[in-house]
Amino acid sequence: MLLQAEHVTHYFGGLCAVSDFNLNLEHGELVAIIGPNGAGKTTIFNLITGVYHATQGSIRLGDVELVGKTSNEITALGIARTFQNIRLFKELSVIDNVRIAQYGQMKYGTWEAMFHLGGYQTEENRSIENAMNLLEVFKLDSVADESSKNLPYGMQRRLEIARALATHPKVLLLDEPAAGMNPSEIGQLMDFIRWIRKEFDLTIILIEHQMRLVMGICERINVLDFGATIATGVPKEIQNNPRVLEAYLGEGAEV
């Protein structure tokens, strides 16, 4: 078992955003979490990555308990994510966005940083090299020196994924990667997600409202409503589940 969530519950004041959520993720799987707006999907990502600490329950990566750890510790353990509302470092260049995410991999200390001694120069050179190689994979190497805020939306989404991968994750959490993409771009994104999964040996959890993407690439789907899991299963089962149809897809949905 790579990632395991057990009885995870979270309250915002009196509002129960996630209740008794369970998830077992094997190495290499691609699982989706879907559900109506405000069902608690993003909150689950926030709980896994330590932005919020679960009110109850446990989340483990391998044998390591994540609840109570800080975000940067969790990222260092191998979980990275993207954001529903893009959260790039806007004023900074594309390459710096990626290089910031290498922080946990770099080794030199404060004194070496203050006097540019020791491992500083070699590590910095390697950092640029690695960042550019990664950007090339995402076809972003030509805009490496632009401020990230000047990129068109689609490129910003790609940069978010590139930045997440720069932390060398085992598990990648994608929060609505297809938002703001048109159907043909979504098609490309599907191929792309399949490819990075293989290339970077990733286990992926995906939140998405674009059913074509979810049904097209995910092996298992977890449906949430009002914080509670209302269905789990393979895409075929979910598409025909009456509760899912009613709460989320709507009658006569074309998926």
């Binding site: 990222t75 990275a80 954001f83």
Partner: peptide
């Protein structure tokens, strides 16, 4: 730029 994102990117 964004402290929470920064933390999540291993800083």
């Amino acid at each position: 730029e964004d402290e929470i994102a920064s933390d999540l990117m291993s800083v």
